[in-house]
Design a protein around this nucleic acid. Sequence first.
DNA 1: GTCTATAAGAAGATAGAC
DNA 2: GTCTATCTTCTTATAGAC
Lengths: 215, 215
Amino acid sequence: MDTKQRILDEALTLFSEKGYANVYVADIADRVGIKAPSLYKHYKNKQAIFDAIIEEMNQRFLEQAGALQINGADAAKDADIYQTISEEQLIDLGRNLFLYFLHDDHTRRFRKMLTIEQFHDKELAKVYQKQYVDDPLSYQGMLFGMLVASGILQTDNVEIMTIHFYAPIYMLLVMCDREPEREPEALKTLEAHIRQFNLLYARDENKIRSRRKKA
Amino acid sequence: MDTKQRILDEALTLFSEKGYANVYVADIADRVGIKAPSLYKHYKNKQAIFDAIIEEMNQRFLEQAGALQINGADAAKDADIYQTISEEQLIDLGRNLFLYFLHDDHTRRFRKMLTIEQFHDKELAKVYQKQYVDDPLSYQGMLFGMLVASGILQTDNVEIMTIHFYAPIYMLLVMCDREPEREPEALKTLEAHIRQFNLLYARDENKIRSRRKKA
DNA sequence: GTCTATAAGAAGATAGAC
DNA sequence: GTCTATCTTCTTATAGAC
């Protein structure tokens, strides 16, 4: 990785731990293994580093969104995947979403940075909200819409059903951001949540088919 | 309000908007209507102001917790209140919780400050988690436990049921902290969430009794 | 592109008069 | 308790050699 990119990477790590104002240009330079003045050959000033991180993440989001839409379109075609979704697959879906958000290094650091900086700039608040609330709800909602159409799940209100699925995942996620040691507990709760979600929303015939494990 | 208290109040406002590091002692003094050096007659240094805010809030929390337990104990005795709880009362319960957290000035500023500072100190993370996640879940859980015992609601897992009730409220709350203009939308979603929660968890005879409004 | 030296300014905190 | 004046330290950023 070249120096310009390493600066972004180390800056993101520091910003996500201490917040923009508590990170000094010299701290970033130290981690990269250069002196502070050298850093100004790569970025105009400290703010430009922050802006570049946001810009880079916006790029990633766009790529992701593109990928998701393609998957979504594919998924709509291969609807039989969703015809046979089991409770265990639903648990996997939720757990994968949770663990990706929690453990993916770049996502995690970026989310923590936005958590700290969100009130500093309206645009940052919007980015946070879109990336960690609105977009997941939109994507999951599309998926659950198909599951309802397939007769796997049953509801009059897919939007609320999606919130019932995602809000607990979100709450456990931000809990683990602040208390990482509670991840095992969060994973247990996550599984219990999805089993109960399945009981509540699965069509009766599907409920009978699903195995009902005791935790 | 005396100067010492006004300092805490103005400092909390500023900390909740900009974060500790971006607030200067002179800013706080300005708002109080004194010069920065005068402030040092009331507090040893900037950190002492922050600590005093935390300390004051811990006191309030203790008082609240005391009050809630008394209410809880009373509620357990007056169980007939919960024998007749309607869908509309459940909506009120959720909306009141939501609006109190969102609009109570002190609570709101304190929560925003902790949101910004939570990764700076493990203790702050704990305070946040306790106050805005664990304690609400614990209190609501107690309440729902009684509703299940009374046969109003039905579930094998009160803990998860409580998360299903509270997690959407929490998600909407932190959404409004960052995008206050979305409060009307949040209130609509909140009501729809609780109506659906009621449909999912109310005993069949109670479901029939409840009016099922279309939004 | 990286360094040393340093300018420029911001911000926390103290001294001492009133 | 509040003020003005000031000290000190920290931090960003630039200048200019290599």
